[in-house]
């Protein structure tokens, strides 16, 4: 197999580079998969003046970066990206092609998979190569996450998947890494029909749950907005950030930017303290990246206790004030 081009491809999603680490996470996972398949890892990168990202990807472990650097590719545009990548897939024939399950990844990857008449699984939480069949086993939540489905693409190629951000860990930056960066000739594209006339950043405040080392997560069991507010105080005392389950967000106790889980953010924290949450899988997906999970729930049978390092069976309304009082005294 040709190691230079590499059978495992990763879509280089560089927008908002310092927040959006998915490409680096995929390179790390891609290397593992490529090793089993005895091939290499390639990032495909489309954009305008993006050489610096190609270097970054090599430093984070990519064997090859294939770059289309063209002023005509400045915006993320579904139609152009699909056309160009379909051409590249046909000429280089990768085995596997992965993208982050970001808004853009989830918008253009289905279209690309359809054009290539191949399979695609959505928002995977795990990937591995089956040691017997050498097929890519794509683990994806089904039925709202009650179950995990192991999906394979037996006959068609490439095997494509979008991957939930935060489930894999990136490799450290290594300036000594060596990789190939190649610039194939790029055609000029017809103007796309979809025109993005304006793109305004909407970041409200600066809630960076992905980077926080302590996350205090609250759920419906807190019972009221007043109770939920106590979490901010706890987070402040422990120098952490506050996250929330979907019902807590829907009740208006926290903004959507604090949502954890399959449809929200995933943490990389050292510690998550999960309070008044039942532990539905859609939510657990968001906190499983934490090194340590502590949960407080008054129901000893709550599913959340199955995934904790320390489970505290208690009424949050009683325990929180005592905890805050104790911490305030100490700090």
């Amino acid at each position: 197999m040709n190691k230079t081009f590499g059978g495992v491809w990763i879509f280089g999603d560089y927008r908002d580079y310092f927040q959006n680490r998915i490409t680096l996470q995929l390179i790390a996972k891609g290397r593992e998969l490529a090793e089993t398949l005895n091939t290499g890892t390639t990032v495909v990168l489309l954009g305008d003046q993006i050489h610096q990202y190609a270097m970054e990807y090599v430093a984070h472990g990519a064997d090859t970066v294939i770059v289309a650097d063209h002023q005509n590719l400045k915006e993320y545009e579904v139609e152009k990206y699909t056309t160009l990548l379909a051409q590249w897939v046909k000429s280089y024939q990768p085995e596997i092609f992965l993208a982050g399950a970001t808004s853009f990844g989830r918008e253009f990857f289905p279209r690309l998979a359809k054009r290539l008449r191949t399979g695609l699984s959505a928002d995977c939480v795990d990937l591995e190569v089956d040691p017997e069949s050498f097929l890519l086993v794509q683990t994806t939540p089904a039925f709202g996450g009650e179950l995990l489905a192991e999906v394979v693409t037996p006959d068609r190629r490439p095997q494509m998947a979008t991957v939930h951000p935060g489930v894999f860990r990136e490799l450290p930056h290594n300036a000594e890494s060596v990789g190939h960066i190649i610039y194939p000739e790029v055609d000029v594209f017809p103007e796309p029909r979809v025109k993005i006339v304006r793109s305004k950043p909407q970041r409200t405040g600066k809630v960076s749950l992905e980077d926080a080392s302590v996350v205090i997560a609250g759920g419906k069991g807190l019972g009221s907005k007043e109770q939920f507010e106590l979490l901010y105080e706890l987070a402040e005392l422990l120098e952490g950030e506050v996250g929330a389950t979907r019902p807590a967000v829907l009740s208006g106790w926290a903004g959507e930017d604090r949502l954890l889980g399959q449809t929200g953010k995933s943490v990389n924290a050292k510690l998550v303290i999960s309070i008044g949450t039942s532990g539905a899988l859609q939510y657990i997906t968001g906190i499983q990246g934490a090194e340590t999970v502590i949960a407080i729930n008054r129901n000893p049978d709550a599913p959340v206790f199955r995934i904790v390092d320390l489970g505290l069976v208690a009424d949050a309304a009683t325990v929180l004030p005592i905890l805050l009082e104790t911490l305030r005294r100490r700090l």
């Binding site: 089904a142 179950l147 192991e150 693409t153 037996p154 904790v308 390092d309």
Partner: peptide, 21 residues
């Protein structure tokens, strides 16, 4: 269809957690 669901399984549990009452 290009994809096949090979298996459905429950989410893996972490083990070794201590439960305190």
């Amino acid at each position: 269809s290009a994809t096949h669901v090979r298996k459905l399984r429950p989410p893996a549990d972490r083990t070794g957690g201590r439960i305190v009452t």
